[in-house]
Design a protein around this nucleic acid. Structure first.
Lengths: 205, 205
DNA sequence: ATCCGTTCTTGACTTAAGTCAAGTAGCCTG
DNA sequence: CAGGCTACTTGACTTAAGTCAAGAACGGAT
């Protein structure tokens, strides 16, 4: 199925230029390093609802999201899905532990929109890590920050009510409601869809 | 997720030998790399309740815990502490994002027991990353796994009751109850101390 | 369009966990 | 070996969020 893509990217950047800008926000990238990064990341398009990884598989690649949304989710004993992470434009997705160590992933990853990504497989990843120190640092940066964000969200779940967290989301990330179904936002917030619906009704009154 | 306890260090290993064993569990370490790792990590002892980091400070070092327990915690708007992570023997602690990027930490880290650690500061860390590829991979491994563990715990909070999570902890990590005060375990589980107390009463009946 | 399967909403009711308050038991430290 | 500080427990009560069930609204496929 052909996926309509909305080029150009912001500022007319190509996907690889957007990735390089993302890297340059975090570390210095030399001209030679740029060439290697461009050569290693492959552009790929994913359909809405397409899975790039299912629990138990070995993660085939990490992906820089040029434009789109992906969710990580686990499935509990009763078959209920728990969304643990949402990744939008300019974020990375993939189970790095599974990719690096060749072990089964503990979660699944699915696109929620038609998504344009730049993918890097284990061979490319190992090669780039050995050749391009700057890239190593980008991955450190991204992973360390994601880890801290996850801990912050976990702490917020205990210290704030669902309504307070909803209001915060509405203030800081309103676009999420245009791009992600409410039942998935509810799961990601750690509440039931009915509860989210009632909170929204309450607010708009 | 079982917590290893080594009293004393396994096979009478010195702290640095224990660290090297930890690295070798994950990646190959050459003789030259071993020398550099030994030279970079400094042994330090911390008192019970001592902080190695307070929110807002720049994290001064990362630490490999030879023996002891540390907790990461945030403080919410009402001054209530939320424990987000517990790290025992043979784990790493420290806010890597703060350490690597020189930015303010978003949480505090405190020892819950007298703790023996091997510390590595930013200079040592940058040097080791440039010199010792094996060490880079150890840090990737540790951080990626910690990230996945955090996501799994977050998902469990939604899909299981506090009592189910308590029973799981009791099964897989009973030693935690010998080493960490109940009010901190409660906070880490995302429940109130009173609730934990009632769950425990119920179980032992 | 119109059908079908989601997603979302709403209502009535239940319940797990939180809150407040009081008391007990440990434990350092002087 | 008291005194005071915390940790922990217990009881009574409240409440936020979950559950179950039914209908409405939306969106993709035909």
């Amino acid at each position: 199925m052909a996926i309509p893509i909305h080029y150009p990217s912001p500022g007319g950047a190509t996907p690889h230029e957007q990735l390089l800008n993302c890297c340059r926000d975090k570390v210095a990238v030399s001209a030679e390093e740029e060439v290697m990064i461009r050569a290693t990341f492959k552009e790929r398009h994913f359909a809405r609802n397409e899975h790039i990884l299912r629990v138990g598989e070995i993660c085939p690649f990490s992906v820089y999201i040029v434009r789109g949304v992906m969710r990580d989710y686990t499935t509990d004993a009763d078959g209920v899905e728990q969304t643990t992470r949402l990744a939008f434009d300019d974020y990375f997705s993939g189970d790095m532990h599974s990719l690096s160590n060749g072990v089964a992933s503990v979660y699944s990853i699915q696109c929620l929109e038609e998504t344009v990504g730049l993918t890097i497989d284990k061979a490319g990843y190992d090669w780039l890590f050995a050749q391009v120190p700057a890239f190593t640092n980008v991955f450190h940066y991204v992973r360390n920050r994601s880890f801290n964000v996850a801990l912050q969200l976990m702490a917020e779940r205990s210290s704030k009510s669902a309504e307070q967290r909803y209001l915060g989301l509405l203030r800081e990330n309103p676009q999420i409601f245009q791009r992600v179904p409410l039942k998935i936002i509810a799961s990601w917030m750690g509440i039931q869809p009915e509860t989210l619906s009632r909170i929204r009704k309450n607010i708009t009154l």
